[in-house]
Nucleic acid binder design. Structure first.
Lengths: 333, 333
DNA sequence: TTCAATTGCTAGATCGTTCTAGATTGCTCC
DNA sequence: GGAGCAATCTAGAACGATCTAGCAATTGAA
């Protein structure tokens, strides 16, 4: 049972193929310097022995791991989508991904250090809450790319989606439907919440509308709580901090007997899997996980390989119209 | 900008403290064989230089990484809860966790191999879909613990929750409320779906009731689709494969004008964060992520350290009664 | 024919640790 | 005062890969 047998090494393969260690090494990493015939012979021997290069020895010597470190939060479904997309893009670029979760009882510092220990050549941090000092310290060791947050100082790359543009899209969509009394249920202290709140205020004022804001947060419960304070403000539309917040707001509206979208329109943010559920059909601002992930991986890899200079990508979100927004009710428009 | 300076090594610390490499090594891993005074001196020097042992070199030599490999699915929120709990328990046992996600476009084999490359000393696979052959092959290299699935053959440990007991609890809860026409919306081809379906059938028959089953799946959409076929069967209660399925079923009921729980009671499975949302309050079978995670980590660590024999833990689920179950309507009871 | 360049391969050093075996010191005990 | 022993420390060989330098054989050009 579970006969722990030593895994084969370069030496074993070399012996089996009748060549030197160095040649096997050359063949295994596809480097030039071996004839086609021996290359075949070596690969065959390796295959037969089930040889797989030892990552730690390899990187100890070469200082290359082809590993991208990625942190994410277990409680944000949108992060999960990014994780999937990062895997795909990294794999396309020939990199592997080391994952580390940030959650209750596991601080981001801890997550990051475990990624560094694993030998990550760059870090991609999703919605990091580290301060500039800490970021700078890590950036001192490897390239760091901040994803979904762009106020990160001068030592860290960032890839984010234009929050102001997203809020603007939402407001334009709603005003074009005749809404004028629009409320923003904000993200409280969450990453990006400040930007979206500020953008909402500026844009509403630009439209000559009152920038009504309720403090919320990134979860359903936050939306639910805000929803209970919502009706007193008599809104015809709500822009929520994210999809989860929107779900909470909608539930609150529903339990108060208001219909979405005939009484109140709701716009979410993230276009996460929730928004797409057939019975929710939430109109939402899409940040396109695929695109963001690809940009982050590309930045990380560019920094690692080409010594590309540090920079900040800002992509433009778009609005996905579904079933939770409609023309403003005549009485309130 | 990002002055990539070489990270300090044992040699640097040894030099700074005026001792040999070996002694620094002894101090760093807390091994006996150094006097208290030099221990202090070395630690001080290490601290000043910001020295952190190089994990790869360490494990290359020692064949110890103190790393547990963990796979999970990005799309199952219950897995996220387990991930959090595994981190906590592993940390308590002095181990770190290497995470690898299984998702669209990332096969479980790929995830597992990346964990092995990272040097995992054991693997914990959440709801693995690997066949016994593959499992055996991996178990040949390191201890493997299957979590949430127990039909895994003789070479793999397992930690699972008694599916039959869970279904029994749900049925007993419902029958005690007077329900007799209970439908199981199953998990289709998902892990554990077979066990739960079989348990449902056996237990219902044991109660002298008809074991009505609809084919479903592990997501909201599956529950929604099943929900549409549900009403024709005129049930007074539904036991869903998991919480996400239950959400879909409830939505379907709601859109058909049925009230939960006055018209139809619904029981979920997993007691995930959804079930606990204040506006959902789903009665659910709890598998206790904390407990499962702790058991899995303990098994893995026991196998690694004490060469404990392989075994299978089966924990007992419990029912968390919330707001989606009530007495059967008189007309249909 | 001879010399240089190219191709195909290998020996040995090296990465940063841990481990084994042995050296050095200081102490106790007879 | 020397044997015996524990405590403290160190030198040097691992671990499994990559990398550098160089050796042999072949090719091409003069």
């Amino acid at each position: 049972m579970t006969q722990e047998q030593r895994r084969p090494t370069l030496v074993d393969v070399a012996h089996a193929a009748g060549v030197s260690r160095a040649l096997v090494s050359i063949v295994m990493r596809g480097a030039p310097g071996a004839s086609e015939s021996t290359r075949q012979r070596v690969l065959e021997a390796a295959g037969e022995l089930g040889y797989r290069p030892d990552a730690r020895a390899r990187l100890l010597r070469s200082n290359r791991t082809r590993l991208l470190g990625l942190t994410f939060s277990t409680s944000q479904p949108f992060h999960s989508e990014i994780v999937d997309a990062v895997y795909a893009q990294a794999s396309a670029k020939g990199y592997d991904v080391a994952l580390s979760a940030v959650g209750r009882g596991r601080a981001e510092e801890r997550a990051v250090e475990s990624l560094l220990d694993a030998g990550s050549e760059a870090l991609i941090l999703i919605a990091s809450t580290l301060n500039e000092n800490d970021l700078g310290r890590y950036a001192h060791q490897v390239p760091v790319v901040s994803l979904l947050r762009n106020d990160v100082g001068d030592h860290v790359d960032s890839v984010s989606c234009d929050d102001a543009a997203g809020i603007r899209l939402a407001i334009e969509h709603l005003t074009s439907l005749g809404h004028r009394r629009i409320i923003h249920v904000d993200g409280g202290t969450a990453v990006s919440a400040d930007q979206r709140r500020a953008a909402f205020r500026a844009e509403m004022i630009g439209h000559g509308l009152e920038p009504l804001t309720l403090s919320g947060g990134p979860s359903e419960e936050d939306g639910l709580a805000a929803g209970q304070r919502l009706l007193a403000l008599n809104p015809s539309a709500v822009i929520a901090f994210n999809d989860r917040t929107a779900l909470g707001v909608m539930e609150s509206l529903r339990s108060a007997g208001r219909n979405v979208p005939t009484d109140v329109s709701v716009v979410g943010y993230d276009d996460s899997q929730f928004a797409r559920l057939s019975y929710i059909q939430l109109t939402s601002i899409s940040q396109d996980a695929q695109l963001l992930a690809a940009a982050a991986v590309n930045r990380a890899v560019d920094r690692i390989e080409n010594r590309q200079p540090l920079g900040h990508d800002v992509s433009t979100p778009h609005l996905v119209r579904r079933a939770t927004t409609a023309a403003a009710p005549v009485s309130r428009a």
